[in-house]
Design a protein around this nucleic acid. Structure first.
Lengths: 110, 110
DNA sequence: TGATCATATGTCGAATCTGACATATAATGT
DNA sequence: ACATTATATGTCAGATTCGACATATGATCA
C-alpha cells in the first residue's frame, strides 16, 4: 500500500496501530479496512438495486440518513455491526455476505 | 426457532426488536445472531488449532482474557468488529471468513 | 435561475462497548 | 487433597459509536 493512500485514510479518521504508527499498516489492519470497504460498497450496491434512498434504508434499520451515508462512505465511526445489520435488513443472506466479502474491490480510497 | 431457545438468548442479555418484543425474532435478527455464533465458533476453533490460550490471543489483539472468553461465548456485549479483528489477528483471510460465515453451525445456544 | 430531492459532512449528548480486574469454575496434574 | 493452568462470568470507568439534527453540496428538473 502506498503512503499516499495511507495518509488519505488517516485523514479520514483512521487510527493505526494505536495511533503511534502513522505509516505501515499491518496485514491485519489492512484486511480489516479492506473488508469494511467491501461491505460498504456492497451495501450501496444493494440499496441502489432496491431503489431505496439512504433515508428509506435508514428508516428500515431505525438509523438516520447521515449514518447510512457514513456507512457507504466507509467512515471509521461506523461499526461492522451496523454495516452488517443493514445488509441483513436489505435481505442479504449469509451467502450474499460471503459473496460481498470475496467480491472484487470496486474503487480505491481517495 | 423455539420459544425456549429465544428465552435462553434473552436470558443471556440479548435484546430483540427494541426490547419490547420478547419473543418473535425477525429473520434479520435471527441471521445476525446466527452469524455471530458462527464467528464465535470459528474463532475458538482457530485459536485452539493454533494452540493458543485465550490469554495469549488477548495479548495478540491487545484485549483481555475475559473479553476473548466472551467473544467465544457469543456474549452480546461483544461487537462483530472485535470478533472479526480477532479472526484476522489469527491470520484468517477473506476466504476463511467467508467459509466461517457459510459454515455449518456447530452447537445450539443453551 | 430557483425549487426539490438525494447525499455528504460535522457535531453532540446518550447509549453501548472496551480493557482491566476480581473472582468463580473447570480441568489436569501431583 | 492441593497446586496450577485455562476458561467463565460479573462489574465498572473510560472510550467509542449511536441516532438525531443542522447544514452543505450535488443532481435534476422546470
Amino acid at each position: 500500500m502506498r503512503d499516499l493512500k495511507k495518509r488519505r485514510l488517516a485523514a479520514r479518521g483512521w487510527k493505526f496501530g494505536g495511533t503511534k504508527e502513522f505509516l505501515g499498516l499491518t496485514a491485519e489492519e489492512e484486511s480489516y479496512i479492506d473488508l469494511r470497504l467491501r461491505l460498504a460498497a456492497g451495501l450501496r450496491k444493494r440499496r441502489i438495486r432496491r431503489r431505496l434512498t439512504q433515508a428509506a434504508l435508514a428508516k428500515a434499520v431505525r438509523s438516520s440518513q447521515s449514518r447510512v451515508a457514513k456507512m457507504e462512505a466507509g467512515d471509521p465511526t461506523v461499526t461492522l455491526d451496523l454495516l452488517i445489520r443493514s445488509l441483513l435488513a436489505l435481505g442479504a443472506s449469509r451467502h450474499d455476505l460471503a459473496k460481498i466479502i470475496l467480491s472484487r474491490r470496486t474503487a480505491a480510497v481517495g
